[in-house]
Amino acid sequence: MSTVTQLEATPVARKAGRAASFRRKSPAWHGLAEWGIRATALLAIAAIVLIFVFILKEALPILFDTHVRGEVSLMKMWLPQAWDGGPARFSWQPASEVPKYSLMPLVAGSLKVTLIALVISAPIAILAAVYTASIAPRRVREVLKPVVELLAGVPSVVLGVFALIVAGTWLQKLFGFEHRLNAVLAGCALSVTIVPLIFTIAEDAITAVPRDYVDASLALGATKMHTILRVVVPAAVPGIAAGIVLGFGRAIGETMIVVIASGNAALLDATLGHSTRTITATIAQEMGETVHGSPHYVVLFVLGATLLAFTFVTNLGAQRIVEHFRKKRGGT
């Protein structure tokens, strides 16, 4: 009799035992996981800090090294100089007899190419995201999203070469650009890499807008278009803004495409059809020719630090913007 009771009780008892042992174990397991996550986070932060330290260490001689300062200084890099007795101007000619290290043409070139890329890609990506997330039928969406995201996998060197060999001629014929390789061409090629980035983030943000908002709007007799424009997209603005900022960071840091397609002449002007030279392309092409520790070498690291500062500041600004919208929405 008692054995039967015991047998009957066994599964329950075992279950209870398992639950208890799980409960007993879980704190240790949690502790381990927490420790692992913390270590990983610290490692990531450490890597970033080390990169910062390395770049700054290589750039610092611009302030202290007498040999370097004989040729160039921060002042000279940022302010116009009367190089050969002529009028004061900005000029990047590190290999000439009197090396000229004005950052302006490069900073302007980077911004020019990046802004062109953003102006092209942001509207396309956002419209595509709105269409995919809230207009397209489910079947279309299931195809469209992975296809656009596949674009992100195209190696940038392929895009660059395509721009160099094919698209350059098209654009020049179409717009009558003075130079075949120019800021617009590089911007166009760049936008192919940025569209999927902004698209993915914006699409996620739009999809995350609660279904209840849409229902509430439709039930008030608003059309689908009105609902999308007045409720869905505004609610997704923080996510969309974040996508654009990430796109900016990606574009200003992209190197291969601009090396190949921008023409690389360090001109300081606002003409879109002119050849242009970016910070990244300059570092990539000139680092190999410099002597370690030479003024040119140090200047290239100052350029790198400038680039880092740029992305850092824009990211910070973006966070502010997102925060601002969040507060306006009253959410958390």
């Binding site: 609660p210 209840d212 908002y213 229902d215 509430a216 709007s217 039930a219 008030l220 007799g221 409720v231 505004p234 609610a235 929405r329 009253g330 959410g331």
Partner: peptide, 14 residues
């Protein structure tokens, strides 16, 4: 527009 609705779960727009 003619037949309005108040949902079971109140949803204010942001």
């Amino acid at each position: 527009r003619r037949v309005g609705m108040v949902f079971q779960r109140p949803v204010a727009f942001p």
